[in-house]
Structures are given as structure tokens and as C-alpha cells.
Design a protein around this nucleic acid. Structure first.
Lengths: 106, 106
DNA sequence: ACTATATTTCTAGAAATATCGAAATATTAG
DNA sequence: CTAATATTTCGATATTTCTAGAAATATAGT
């Protein structure tokens, strides 16, 4: 994980639709969900959903594996942990809130 | 922090330029940095940089306070912790990598 | 081969975003 | 008030992204 990849992941997860899909897959666990089930659950037109899942796939956030006519989608293991580790290490101050100037004061 | 706000934050941090700015401000700590210094450091045209800082401001990721002719920018305390807490709670499986089907096998 | 189901690819219009120069605004100094 | 500095706003263009219908592809069953 580096800044470039992190930005890519953040950008992909930054779409409300894709974040919903991703969260759904997280909840579904290792077995994941079939595209059709995601579609029925989120009520998104198939072509639109396919577009978003494809993007999540390119970025490596989601994996797909075919089982007969269906495509099972699941979150790629470890990717979120890597991202969070990066964010914690590189994008958190370590400073306490109290260290900051209080811009809300009159 | 909820899904909507999280998506907003992720989307904003998903721009390579804005992520660089944010990381620079994180490193700068509570005192933050002046816009001009960020500009000289990242070599971005002033108007472009201003646009990105404005977006980070709207989203609440960055705060600005004027001191004379200069505008000090700093990361908004706590926001990143909130985001990471959300991601950890809502977007991490808790499953171990080994629980997933190995799609890399032959 | 034919049919049904599952999903993707193609296509295109609309909306959002990025980029950056030029002009405008805010602030300080003299 | 004028000049200089710091930053934003405006305006215009280029690019990306979103959305979803229509057509294409893949698979399974008969």
C-alpha cells in the first residue's frame, strides 16, 4: 500500500453506491454474494451495478469467481486492513484534539 | 460519522492531489501550513490548489484560519480517527485471510 | 440446437470534476 | 492612497464519471 494505491482505493470507496456494495460484501463474509442478489438487494439496474463492481475489481477491493451462471463477489481479504493501516500511519496526526487551535471560540 | 459522510470523506481523499495535501498537513501537525508553502512544496498552480483546499474544507477534513495575509490550513482534529473507526467497524470483515477461498491457486 | 437465466459490454447523454490563466479580493506596509 | 503580497474567484476547456437501456456473451438444461 502506498499513496497512489491508497488514493485509488479511497476514490473507489468514495462513491456511495460502491461503498454500499462493498459494505454489503463485508457483511456477507468470505462466501460473498452473487451479483444478482446484490442487485435485488440494492435495487440498482444490472448494467450500472456491473459497472461499479468492475471498478471495485480493477482496484482490487473485490474479487469475483464464477460458479456456473453466477458470479460470486467478495471483498479481497486484507485490502481493507492494508488501507486502514496506511491511513492510521500516514494520515493520522497522533496529536490530541486539545493540541489544536480552537477555531470555534468566539 | 455515517455511510454518507464516510463516502464524502473517502471521495475527497481519493484525489491524489488532495491526499498529498492532506498528508502534508498531517505531518505539519496542529500548526498546519500556509497555503503558499503548500503550493511551493507541491508545485501546484495557486488556483488549482485553492480549489482542492476548498473542497477539503467543505468536507470538514481541513480547517483554515487567517493570520494576516496568510491562510493557515490544518487537518481537522478527530475527523480521520472518526473515519478510521467507521471503516474498521463497518468495512472490515473480522474474518481471517485464511477463511477466504484461495482464488490464486491453479 | 434452442431456451432461459446471469452478467457484461456497448453506447451515449448528463452531470461532476480537474486544470489553470486572468482578474478580483483581502491584508499589510509605507 | 498606492504598492506589494497572499489567496480566491471567475471563466473556459478537457476529462472523467454516472446512469441505464439495448445488445452481446456465458452457462446450464432439455
Amino acid at each position: 500500500m502506498n499513496e497512489e494505491i491508497a488514493a485509488k482505493c479511497l476514490s473507489e470507496l468514495g462513491s456511495p453506491t460502491r461503498l454500499s456494495v462493498f459494505r454489503l460484501l463485508v457483511k456477507a463474509g468470505p462466501d460473498g454474494m452473487v451479483v444478482g442478489d446484490i442487485q435485488r438487494r440494492l435495487q440498482i439496474p444490472a448494467s450500472t451495478l456491473s459497472h461499479h463492481i468492475a471498478r471495485l475489481s480493477w482496484t482490487g477491493l473485490v474479487e469475483q469467481r464464477r460458479q456456473g451462471r453466477q458470479l460470486h463477489c467478495s471483498t479481497r481479504p486484507g485490502i481493507m486492513d492494508d488501507l486502514i493501516t496506511f491511513l492510521t500511519a500516514e494520515c493520522c496526526t497522533g496529536f490530541d484534539t486539545a493540541d489544536y487551535a480552537d477555531t470555534t471560540a468566539a
